[in-house]
Design a protein around this nucleic acid. Structure first.
Lengths: 194, 194
DNA sequence: CATGGCATGTAATCTGTTACATGATTAT
DNA sequence: ATAATCATGTAACAGATTACATGCCATG
C-alpha cells in the first residue's frame, strides 16, 4: 500500500503529471522509494478512483498531459498513514548474502588439496563487484553532501518541515557512509584471502 | 532470482528439509534475506527440477520429510552468481518516506492560523512509532553483539570463511547501530516540533 | 509528411503474501 | 482416541518488472 502514499507525498509537495512524477521518482523521492512509470500511472488511476486526488483542468494545447492534485481526503489519508504501525521490514541485503555464499563455497571446497577453483574465481569476481558498488556509494554520498551544503547555505532550518527534510537527508548520508566504510573493509577481507 | 541462491547457500552450509530451512530463514540467513515456507517449498521444487539440488534418501520412518543436498552443478551456479554484477537496488526506506510525508503535511496545512490538526496528530503518532522501531533495532543490535562476542570467544578468526562470516555480522551490527542513532535523533526532531 | 521525443498506457510474466488444505507423528 | 505439532504443499491475489503499443506535437 505504500507507493500510493509516496505519490500522495510527491503531489502534495507539487502537483504533477505522471511523467513528471516518474522523473521525481528517479531523483529525490526515489532515493527512498523507487518506482517505474508503469507503477505510477496505475496507482494514479487508483488514487483518482478512490477520490484521494483529482485531475486539474489544463489547456487542451498540452496534448494528453494530465496533471493531478491532492484532495482533502487524500491529505487526511496520508496523515493517518504517517503514524500507522509498520511491520518489521523483510531484510534484503544482497551483498551480505553474497559474502555468506562465498564463505559457504570456500568452506566446502577443500577436499582435494589442490586449492579451490570455484571459490577463488568467485572471490576475484566478487572483489571487482564490491569495488564497483563502493564507487557508486561514494558518488551517492557526495551528491547527498552537496544537497546538505546547499540546504544549510542560508543558516540552520527553523521550520519543522525543513528540519524533518534535513533529517531525511541525514538518513541518506549516514547509510551511504556506512556502506562505503563496510565495502572498504570487505574489499580488504576478500583480497587478504587471495 | 536471488532466493534460490540464498537456499543454495543455506543447503551448502547444512543439508536440510524445507521446514528446517524455514526456521533458519527466521534466524541467521533471514537477517539478510527473509522468506516464508511457501516460497521455500516452491523454490526447492524448482532447484530440484533444474538439477541443482537433490533429495537425500531417508528412512521412511520420518514421515513425509524430505532432505535436500546441493549437487556440483548447484555449487557451480552459486559460485558463478557470487561475482555477478548487481543492479543498484530499488530503495525502500519506509521511515524516511514517512518523515518526508510528515514534512509535506505540516508544510501545506497552515492556511487558517488555527494550528494544523492533521499534522499534529500525525506527528504524535509517528513519534510513538519511531520509539517502537528504535526499541526493535536496539534489541537486534544486542543480539548481533552477543553473536559477535560468542564468535570471538576463541580468538581472532584465521580461516577465510570465518572472516567472511564475521564481516557479514559487522554489516548487521553497523546497520542496526546506524538506525538506532538515526531514530534517536529523529525522535528529538519530532518532539521538538510539538 | 516523416521523424523523434513526449506522454500515457496495456499485456505478460515473475515474485511475494495470505489463507487454506492435508497427511504423518507424538504426547496425553 | 484425540489433540497438538510436524511437514509439505495449493490457490488466489497483490505488487513489481519487462516488453510492447498508441496518440500527440514540434522540427526539418
Amino acid at each position: 500500500m505504500s507507493l500510493q502514499h509516496a505519490i500522495l507525498t510527491a503531489l502534495l509537495e507539487q502537483p504533477s503529471s505522471g511523467l513528471e512524477l516518474t522523473r521525481r521518482f528517479d531523483r529525490s523521492i526515489g532515493f527512498f522509494w523507487s518506482a517505474t512509470h508503469q507503477q505510477i500511472y496505475r496507482d494514479l488511476a487508483r488514487l483518482e478512483q478512490s477520490g484521494l486526488i483529482h485531475e486539474l483542468p489544463l489547456p487542451p494545447a498540452q496534448g494528453r498531459r494530465k496533471e493531478y492534485e491532492v484532495l482533502p481526503a487524500g491529505r487526511a489519508e496520508l496523515a493517518r498513514w504517517i503514524g500507522e504501525e509498520q511491520p518489521p521490514r523483510a531484510a534484503r541485503e544482497p551483498m551480505a548474502l553474497r559474502m555468506r555464499a562465498l564463505a559457504a563455497v570456500v568452506a566446502g571446497g577443500e577436499g582435494d588439496g589442490s586449492g579451490n577453483g570455484e571459490g577463488d574465481g568467485a572471490a576475484v569476481a566478487l572483489a571487482a563487484e564490491v569495488a564497483r558498488q563502493l564507487e557508486l556509494h561514494r558518488q551517492q554520498l557526495a551528491e547527498y553532501r552537496s544537497f546538505e551544503a546547499r540546504d544549510l547555505a542560508d543558516g540552520e532550518p527553523k521550520e519543522l518541515a525543513q528540519r524533518l527534510q534535513h533529517q531525511v537527508l541525514r538518513a541518506g548520508i549516514g547509510l551511504e557512509q556506512f556502506w562505503a566504510d563496510w565495502l572498504t573493509e570487505t574489499l580488504a577481507v576478500i583480497k587478504d584471502g587471495q
